[in-house]
Measured scan of single mutants.
Amino acid sequence: MATGGRRGAAAAPLLVAVAALLLGAAGHLYPGEVCPGMDIRNNLTRLHELENCSVIEGHLQILLMFKTRPEDFRDLSFPKLIMITDYLLLFRVYGLESLKDLFPNLTVIRGSRLFFNYALVIFEMVHLKELGLYNLMNITRGSVRIEKNNELCYLATIDWSRILDSVEDNYIVLNKDDNEECGDICPGTAKGKTNCPATVINGQFVERCWTHSHCQKVCPTICKSHGCTAEGLCCHSECLGNCSQPDDPTKCVACRNFYLDGRCVETCPPPYYHFQDWRCVNFSFCQDLHHKCKNSRRQGCHQYVIHNNKCIPECPSGYTMNSSNLLCTPCLGPCPKVCHLLEGEKTIDSVTSAQELRGCTVINGSLIINIRGGNNLAAELEANLGLIEEISGYLKIRRSYALVSLSFFRKLRLIRGETLEIGNYSFYALDNQNLRQLWDWSKHNLTITQGKLFFHYNPKLCLSEIHKMEEVSGTKGRQERNDIALKTNGDQASCENELLKFSYIRTSFDKI
């Protein structure tokens, strides 16, 4: 039985969820670079991206490699990797027998973001014989899940209580170790020597080791999670996991709180800001991140802002960003909400898709409305799209047979046209069989910064309504002859009103 693990408890099935942008060198404390989270699957090609990484700022997932063999891993080693800020997950990587050479110096898994409450997941690794993470000293947050690894031993010899604050939620089941077939031998045991430290858990006094050649490092209890030197002297209180010299914040392997210019500090002093819960960055760093993602459509890219001495992905609820200094300031009234469309555009074809934009005031991208039916549609669209004030790209209304009016965009005031449909149009209306009105132009103002209007096959939309939009939106004169079809717009509506004058002759039985 794995020490510190839980057996036999019912657990939810383990679901495996399925960018080499360097964020800056980590400095003297770390020998390499800070790398983003990685999802490495199918083959070993991307694994080489770990070569210079000291910190993975995010998670590391290595999974679904069915053609790899043990010899493929023999020359692979990433000794610079010290810390993973989120979680480490391995799933069905064939041929991998140990992690001792792959990650010989991995010391800390912070667990800032977890995989279903777990910071370390080893699942269905069919050839893994031992973990071998002999320098792993601290899992700051989260638990361990090690399950269905039929060859995995050296679990009962690990004292997880020396690595985690609590072992109650560890789930370590259905491994070879369960069948008591392992016969784990710690260093020196074969020669009758006791080389590794022994600890007591559940009444068992057991030597602690990761492999037959690597003991588990056990520091004096007084050192807590700070770690200790090879001689057993406690590291500085700002260290986490390990250090090369005692009581020196510049000799830590990793930091308990924050890293700044080669030393570990309790908090980031001005003019620095907390970033990702582990390091200090200056304003320029946060500003660069903001600008890199301002026009990016890459998933996970955030326009970072500053709030409460932190550089964070977005302002919290009730705050909006001051564009001059990136500071989050309290909103006066309802907060603006910028919604970034991942692929640059979004099609609204149902109430469900409209709900995804609920509360958005600025759309960074283009909207395509293609709704053919739905219950209580006008009210639903207004509830979900009615706060949109600005669209950076274009607005396209296409084959939306259920629409009679666009009044559900009740606050839309600006279409920038930074991206144009077919390279020309910022407003595009095609084949809307029941569209009769755009907006009530006596109450609604709309500016279209650039781009043209396109109207074709809107049989109940009168040309007068379209011409009014040209005047109000500032697009009059931009359109070419064929942009607004004269014969297919309003051709099934009563669009022309003329005053009919009647004269009559009164007659009676005795007068003409």
Rank of each mutant, 00 (worst) to 15 (best):
Y273L: 10
Y87L: 00
Q245T: 05
V93S: 01
H302G: 12
R74P: 01
C182P: 14
N105H: 03
L50D: 00
L120W: 01
E231F: 15
D184K: 12
D72M: 12
L96W: 02
Q245F: 07
L152C: 10
P316D: 05
A190Q: 14
E207A: 11
H28E: 08
C328G: 01
R256I: 09
G132F: 01
D247E: 03
S112E: 15
V144T: 05
G142W: 00
C235V: 00
D169Q: 11
T157V: 06
I62Y: 00
P79T: 06
E33T: 06
F115L: 10
S317Q: 15
P104A: 01
K80L: 07
H59M: 08
L233R: 14
G183Y: 07
H307P: 01
S213G: 11
N308C: 02
S324A: 15
K224G: 10
L90A: 03
T85M: 06
A190P: 09
Y87G: 01
L99C: 03
S244R: 11
T140F: 08
L63V: 15
H212L: 14
N325K: 03
S143Q: 14
L155C: 14
M38R: 04
D248V: 03
V126G: 15
I84Y: 00
K191E: 09
L136P: 00
G318P: 01
N179V: 13
T229I: 10
L90S: 01
C255M: 01
R263F: 00
I122C: 06
G333P: 02
P313Q: 09
R145N: 10
E238T: 11
L76A: 12
S225N: 15
H59G: 11
Y319C: 04
D165E: 14
P249A: 06
R141E: 12
N322S: 10
L136F: 05
D165P: 14
N195W: 12
H212M: 05
T85K: 05
E238W: 04
M125Q: 05
S225K: 04
T267E: 02
E71W: 04
A190R: 12
C255K: 01
W160N: 01
C223T: 01
G95V: 02
I139E: 01
K224I: 09
G203W: 05
R141N: 14
N325Y: 04
F283K: 12
D101L: 11
L90V: 08
E231W: 04
D184G: 15
P270F: 05
V108W: 04
P336I: 12
C280P: 00
P36Y: 07
R298L: 11
V265S: 04
Y154I: 08
R74K: 12
T329Q: 15
T199W: 11
F78P: 00
F66Y: 11
V253G: 07
K193N: 11
F285D: 04
N149E: 00
G262P: 01
I222V: 07
I82G: 05
P79L: 03
E124K: 06
F116N: 15
Y171T: 06
E207L: 10
L64P: 05
F283V: 10
N105V: 04
P316K: 03
P246R: 07
K100E: 14
K80T: 08
A190N: 10
I40S: 01
V167C: 14
N179Y: 02
V200Q: 11
N52W: 03
C331W: 15
Y87C: 00
T45F: 05
C293V: 03
Y304Q: 03
P79H: 06
G300Y: 04
D86V: 00
R41H: 01
F283G: 04
M125R: 00
R298I: 12
C280M: 00
C239R: 00
E124Y: 12
E151M: 09
G241H: 04
G192Q: 15
Q204R: 09
I84F: 00
R74F: 07
L128P: 01
W210N: 04
L136S: 01
A119T: 04
F285Y: 04
F115I: 14
H226F: 15
N138V: 03
L289P: 03
G192F: 15
L81G: 00
S98R: 03
C234M: 03
F285M: 07
T189Q: 08
P31A: 04
R141C: 03
H214C: 15
C243T: 00
S324K: 12
N325V: 05
T329N: 06
V55F: 03
G333A: 03
T45I: 09
T229S: 09
F205R: 02
E57D: 15
F283Y: 08
C293G: 02
I56F: 00
W160M: 13
F78C: 03
L63M: 09
H307S: 05
C196F: 12
C331N: 06
S213P: 13
P270K: 03
E180Y: 08
I312P: 06
L174A: 12
N282I: 12
R297S: 08
G95T: 02
I82C: 07
D39W: 13
S161I: 06
L47W: 02
R256T: 11
E147G: 09
K310W: 13
N282E: 08
N295P: 03
P316F: 02
E207Y: 09
I122R: 00
N150P: 14
V173T: 11
Q245S: 09
L260F: 07
S237C: 09
S98L: 01
K191D: 02
C252T: 02
C228P: 02
T199G: 09
V121M: 08
H59E: 03
L164N: 05
C219A: 06
D288P: 01
R110M: 10
P31G: 15
C331L: 05
L240I: 07
C215K: 11
P79A: 05
S324Y: 04
